[in-house]
Design a protein around this nucleic acid. Sequence first.
DNA 1: TGTACATCAGTGAACGCGCGTTCACTGATGTAC
DNA 2: TGTACATCAGTGAACGCGCGTTCACTGATGTAC
Lengths: 210, 210
Amino acid sequence: MAASRTTTRTRNPRGEGGRLRDEIVTAAVGLLDETGDANAVTLRSVARSAGIAAPSIYRHFPDQPAVMLAVVRSAFADLEVQLRIGLDAAGESPRGRLVALCEGYLDYARTHSGRYRTMFGGVWMPDLHDSSVTREDVATLGDTIMALLVDALERCIAAGESTSTDAHSDTVALWLGLHGLAHQRASTVAFPWPPDIAERLIGTLAHLTE
Amino acid sequence: MAASRTTTRTRNPRGEGGRLRDEIVTAAVGLLDETGDANAVTLRSVARSAGIAAPSIYRHFPDQPAVMLAVVRSAFADLEVQLRIGLDAAGESPRGRLVALCEGYLDYARTHSGRYRTMFGGVWMPDLHDSSVTREDVATLGDTIMALLVDALERCIAAGESTSTDAHSDTVALWLGLHGLAHQRASTVAFPWPPDIAERLIGTLAHLTE
DNA sequence: TGTACATCAGTGAACGCGCGTTCACTGATGTAC
DNA sequence: TGTACATCAGTGAACGCGCGTTCACTGATGTAC
C-alpha cells in the first residue's frame, strides 16, 4: 500500500511548492486511517508514504507536532463537511436535522476511528512544551461542530420537539454522550451494545418529545 | 522524582521474587501518573524508576504490552476499590448510592487522568498481534464497574426513584455519558463546561425523578 | 535575443538518542547428602 | 555438622532499529540586464 518510487517525483513548479504541504497532510491522514495509530504517523513514515525525502517536510512544517496539528485540523474540517452534507439531505424537520447530525457524527467516528481517536484522544498534545503547537491551536478545534449541534437543538426546542430549557448546556451533555459512544466504539474491540443505544442516548439527552 | 540509586537494591529472598512484579507495576503506574502519557511507560523508564536493570523485567513479564496490561488491570482494580469506598460512605438511599458511584467515577478520571486515558484510550492495544496480550485479556476489564452501576440503577428503579424501564440499556447509556465527560476532561486542556454538567448527565441518563 | 544569476523545491548522508530484546553472566541462598 | 551443588533473583554489555533533526548540497526555472 506504500507508494512505490518507480518514477522520480516531478517537482512542483515555482511558487507552487505549497502543493507538497497538502500532499504531506494527505499522506499523514492516510497513514492514520491505515494504521489507526497516531504513533505510526512519524515524519519518516509520512515522507515514505508521500514519496519524498523526510527533510523535505521541514520546508512546510516546523516540526512533527505541527504535522499532527494539520492532520487534526484537516479531520475536523472533513467531519464538518460530512455533517453539513447530512444536514442538507435531512430536509426541514428540526428533529430530523438533529438526528442526522448525531448519526453523521457517530458514522464519522466509526468509519474513521483512527482519526477520531486522534482528534479527541489528546495523544498528540503532551508535547505542548518545546513544540511549535500552542494551546490556542488546540482550544478552538471543535467549536464549529458544537455550534451546529446547538443550532439544531434550538430549532427542536422552537418547534416543540424538545423539552429542553437550556439549549447550550443540553447540547454539551448531548455531545458528551455522543462522544462517549463514538470514542468507546472507536477504541474497543467488541462490546455488547444494546442495539438502540444511539437512539436512546440522543432521545434522552436531547429531551425529545414522546 | 526518579529513584536515586544511592543504595544497591537488596535482592528479594528466595521464592519471593514475585515481589518485584508488584514493584514494576507500581513504578509503571507512577510513571503514567507523572507523565500522563502511556508512551512514556517504556521498559527502560520503568526499570529506571523501579531501580532495577531493564532485563530484570523479563523475569516477570513476557514483553512490554504485558506490563501495560498489568498497569491497566491494576488501575481498574483501584477504580473499583474507590467506587466501593464511595458506596460504603453513601448510606442506604438508592439515589445517593447511584450518584456516589457516578461522582466517584468522575473523580477518579479527573484525579488520575493519565491512567484513565490509558484504561480506555486503546492506545496500548494496537499491538494485539505479535504481543502476548490477547483479546480476552482486554474484553472483560470494565465488567465489574458496569455491574456496580447496573445494580445501583436497579435499586433506584425498585425504589421508584428512576423511571427507567430497561436498567441494563440505560446503564450503558449512563456509563457512556460518564465516559464522554470523564474522557474529555482527561484529554483536553480547558473547556467551558456548564457547572452542573455532571448532574445534568446523571439525572437525565438515569431517568431520575424530579 | 542571449546569458548570468538569484531563487526555489527538494535531496542524501549523517548525527545522536532511546527503545525492546538477547545473551551469557554473577552471586547469594536453600537443600541433599 | 559440613560441604557441594542446584536454584533463583537480578545484572551489564551489546544488538539492531526507527526516530527527529541538521547540514551542505543539487539542479531546474524564472528574471534582470
